[in-house]
Design a protein around this nucleic acid. Structure first.
Lengths: 257, 257
DNA sequence: GTCAGGCCTCACGCCGCGTTAGGGTCAATC
DNA sequence: GATTGACCCTAACGCGGCGTGAGGCCTGAC
């Protein structure tokens, strides 16, 4: 009863023979059978397990954690994935910061501009911002302060380049909603929900805390209640606020937890 | 003439004493002075150099490269930073893809959809794909085969989640172009160029090779010449192909090298 | 003189394998 | 049955960037 040899598995899966040896050594993937000559033979089950391993490895899990995750029930798997998602996002934010820093360094090296602190808040009139903050505290109570402070810290870290990129991104997303609204697409239709997914991602990138279902729904409510947000969306298209809210609520129900 | 001791430098800079030892060992940061007792003493110059080292380390440069960069003239430094920026951006793209994959996996785990091998190629009718491939080889010569094979390998690696996410992403981007075209925005205007940037990123995610200016321009040409692409874009809006091409060409000239 | 708290130099350990080095096994061909 | 060449094995070092000891010298305060 043959089974696959190391090099066959290697070819099928794309990993090296050495990697298979290694996984055997550390007990992550044992062959189904070992011949009297010491040859390793793998079966279908092992191929499936290897697929799982590679998937998690792709996601950046350390090998020992992969072992634990694969040998644990589904429940733990969800938790592990969620935790890992958080790590990845933190890393993504960090990477963006680094790119920005490089841009600034390059600018400075090339003798161009010294940074202009005021321009950094371009698009956010400071007076308005203060008012908005007061309004939020008034509306949601003092515990929202933490979040606001967190956002401010994040914003201080920001440099122009990032700011521009984020602005462009959200502008594109909002343009998509305007277009969808004009085309009469229902807010819970697939394309609009895909767009809403991008919106959620954008929010997740700005916001230092996980975007839960409740948080996203709250945000939708905020868009309707806060005059500045409302004005912003209505300026883009009549009924835009309501449309966006509907899309967000549908998305929250279907995709978030 | 005192100078700072290891622990003083450590406290000032935030690195460990061991790290200073290490940097001394590998010749990255030598003390200004070594006492008869073997004690290391650092001066202001060394503190400045350490700052530079830490800056580059933050950016993810390997230590040996940092050494070379610091001992090089400014223009080399610019080159190194630029190259590193590209690396970081690639990493950021990868991380984003991973986060999306996790999201989709979580959705699947929570009982929604089982992934369906056949559906994986949804949107790419296999017969059409074969035809398209033949056409490409005919048009660009056999050396394009490598790229096609690379893409196929990548596609085989793909899971459903990835595929869906990418489809949603490109659909959103194309919708943006349709909308911009309808609004009469010039193809080289800022918002359209930002959208084009997203398009380039999407291409970069699909394509296993770097998206150079020449490659992107070729792709623009391809969109016009290949009947399937042409049909695809014209189906979304009249004049869409030409519009997209104009945006891509402008982007290539301004942003790519 | 003695104690605490610097400082020093080895040197192993971590992670995920790549990469020799040195040697057995299998199938086909001479 | 002997050779060949493709495949298999184990064992062990190497990388990068230090953390974390172990074991011992220096210095200043009591």
């Amino acid at each position: 009863m043959g089974g696959y040899t190391v090099s066959e598995v290697a070819k099928l899966s794309g990993v090296s023979v050495r990697t298979l040896h290694h996984y055997d050594d550390i007990g992550l993937l044992k062959p189904a059978d070992v011949g009297a000559n010491g040859y390793r033979y793998y079966g279908k089950d092992e191929l499936l397990r290897l697929q799982q391993i590679l998937f998690h490895r792709e996601l950046g899990f350390p090998l020992d954690e992969i072992g634990r995750v694969l040998d644990a029930p589904d429940f733990d798997r969800v938790a592990a994935l969620t935790a890992h998602r958080t790590r990845l996002q933190a890393q993504a934010r960090r990477t963006r910061r680094l790119v920005r820093t490089i841009d600034d360094t390059l600018a400075a090296l090339q003798g161009a501009t010294t940074m202009d602190d005021k321009a950094m808040y371009r698009g956010f009139d400071p007076e308005k911002q203060a008012k908005q903050e007061a309004w939020l505290v008034d509306r949601y109570g003092p515990e929202i302060r933490k979040s606001i402070d967190a956002v401010k810290t994040v914003q201080k870290d920001w440099k122009q380049a990032d700011f521009d990129a984020a602005q462009a991104e959200i502008a594109g997303i909002e343009a998509g909603f305007v277009c969808a609204l004009a085309d009469g697409l229902p807010a819970d239709s697939a394309p609009v929900q895909a767009l809403t997914g991008r919106h959620r991602d954008w929010i997740a990138n700005q916001w230092p805390q996980p975007v839960t279902r409740a948080a996203y729904k709250n945000l939708a409510a905020l868009y309707g209640e806060h005059p500045d947000f409302h004005a912003r969306y209505e300026a883009q298209a009549a009924g835009m606020t309501e449309y966006l809210q509907a899309a967000m609520l549908a998305f929250a129900e279907r995709e978030l937890t």
